[in-house]
């Protein structure tokens, strides 16, 4: 009985971590800024999730860790700038409908461009290095350099501005806590994408094949599924999600430069390590944790924001050496 109870604790402790951190932050920060920061943290977390989820699925399914994943974030952000420029007429008006249509167009364009690039990337770069982890790391780092430099060739070296649409500027007040409108919108979009992903993985045959493939590729093939085709699809979806993350992040920062993806790389890796490589659920929790930590610590001790995430990772690794939700080893 006692053993049982302990097992339950062990199983549920990873889930309890996020609510615990949110609650612990309340007395430390004070009710006013706490709500603002919590929403900001959740928004950042969900954007990070979009980027990290693709990477973790790609890793889980094919044992490929793509160090160039961040490049697709950058591409998504720059494509957004290009797409929204001619649509300035729609974004500058205070019509919420027109604003949202413009953003939707940009989101689709960013996802499509990154996904298409992902297709080429898988064919040209990734295909050569299956099962060779060392060459994988090297070649994807080389490819990261190339894509970032090509972005500069196409869009120029200077940072580009990406103003938020008129009706998503400013804040709404919940009680006395100001909450940026854009953050709420981004949170809604991010949650919708995460939910769609969840439904796809849980409710469709293809999602089932993906989840099975993460556990045992060979058996999936022996059951009649072409895992290579599934993988190309997942790779494109993963890079498309990174592009979406780039679009939302760039729009949030209102400025885009060629380092926008790099700045995310370390956070994304921390999320993957925290969550357990290959686990989408772990990735979600890891992303939210990192988003919240960054914002809470950023408020309490601004200099420690990024460092605190690395400390969080170290603490979690000491507790659970393979992350919160470890997947089966291949």
């Amino acid at each position: 009985m006692k053993e049982d109870w302990r097992n339950h604790m062990r199983r549920w402790a990873p889930y309890a971590l996020t609510p615990l951190i949110i609650l612990a932050a309340l007395p430390a920060i004070g009710a006013g800024p706490w709500l603002t920061l919590t929403v900001a943290g959740l928004t950042m977390g969900i954007m990070l999730f979009l980027v990290a989820s693709g990477l973790t699925l790609i890793f889980g399914l094919m044992d490929v860790l793509n160090f160039a994943h961040a490049a697709f974030v950058t591409v998504g952000a720059y494509v957004t700038v290009t797409v929204l420029r001619p649509l300035a007429g729609w974004t500058m008006q205070t019509s919420l409908t027109l604003n949202l249509i413009a953003l939707l167009v940009a989101l689709i364009a960013a996802a499509a461009a990154s996904g298409a690039l992902g297709f080429v990337f898988e064919r040209v770069i990734i295909r050569q290095v299956y099962g060779a982890p060392l060459r994988q790391i090297l070649i994807t780092i080389g490819a990261l350099t190339i894509i970032e430099q090509l972005v500069v060739v196409i869009w120029g070296p200077q940072a580009l501005v990406l103003p938020k649409p008129a009706s998503l500027r400013g804040s709404v007040f919940i009680g006395s806590s100001p909450i940026e409108t854009y953050r709420l919108a981004a949170l809604a979009v991010g949650l919708a994408v995460a939910l769609a992903m969840h439904l796809f993985l849980r409710r469709t045959r293809l999602g089932l094949v993906v989840r099975a493939g993460v556990e045992n590729r060979e058996m999936v093939q022996a059951l009649g599924y072409h895992i290579r085709r599934v993988f190309i699809g997942v790779f494109m979806a993963g890079t498309a999600l990174a592009g979406m993350g780039g679009m939302m992040w760039g729009q949030y920062q209102e400025t885009v430069n060629s380092q926008i993806g790099d700045s995310m790389t370390i956070l994304v890796f921390i999320i993957l390590i925290i969550g357990g490589l290959g686990s989408v659920g772990g990735c979600f929790i890891g992303a939210i944790l990192v988003g919240l930590t960054t914002n809470y610590v950023g408020f309490l001790a601004p200099k420690m924001a990024l460092g605190s995430n690395i400390l969080l990772m170290a603490a979690i690794l000491l507790w659970q050496p393979r992350g919160l939700f470890p997947m089966a080893e291949h």
């Binding site: 045959r205 089932l208 989840r211 099975a212 556990e215 045992n216 060979e218 058996m219 997947m327 089966a328």
Partner: peptide, 14 residues
Amino acid sequence: GIFGKLTVRENMLL
């Protein structure tokens, strides 16, 4: 070749 994280039903469905 059992998929441990999938349910029995999902294993069969595959």
